[in-house]
Amino acid sequence: MNHESNAPSSPRSRRLDPDLIAGIVIVLAAGALLLRTAGMPAMTALLPVSMLSVLVLLGVFLIARCVIRLKRQGDAYAPTQVFDNARRFLGIAASIALYVAGVALLGFYTTTAVMIPAVAWCFGYRSLKGLLLADLIFTGGIAIIFVLLMGQELPTELFLR
């Protein structure tokens, strides 16, 4: 996925059509999964094999269509742009991953209380008062509902385990 994000910058790779990449990914993934049907009983394998074969076939169609379009339209062909802002996307993906890892390691309430203002701040909401208020209402509200009312456990805090 990484080379995709660089696509708009260099003129040579401008022709790198995301549909083409998608087609290749689909064919490869479905093909790899198709190999795993080998050991299955016949009736068990029937639907997976047919679905994956259809996926491979459709992936090939997708690739072929991209190639044909590219040939016909040449430089005039403008593939769909995936990222409005690739750096932002990577930042968001990283913060989601960090958040989930944090919840698993540190506990739900601590991580959430840190994540909400931090993420909102990083991505453009800069009102300190608003951030703190929203954080308090949200994390506090969840704590009241889950801990006090329901007695339902979300991943426990590190210091309470």
Partner: peptide
């Protein structure tokens, strides 16, 4: 209609709760 970055952050937390529980 909360500010969008805030709404985004809150949805991420909600999504976690909704799936985990």
């Amino acid at each position: 209609r909360l500010p969008r970055p805030l709404l985004g952050a809150i949805i991420i937390a909600l999504v976690f709760i909704g799936v985990y529980s």
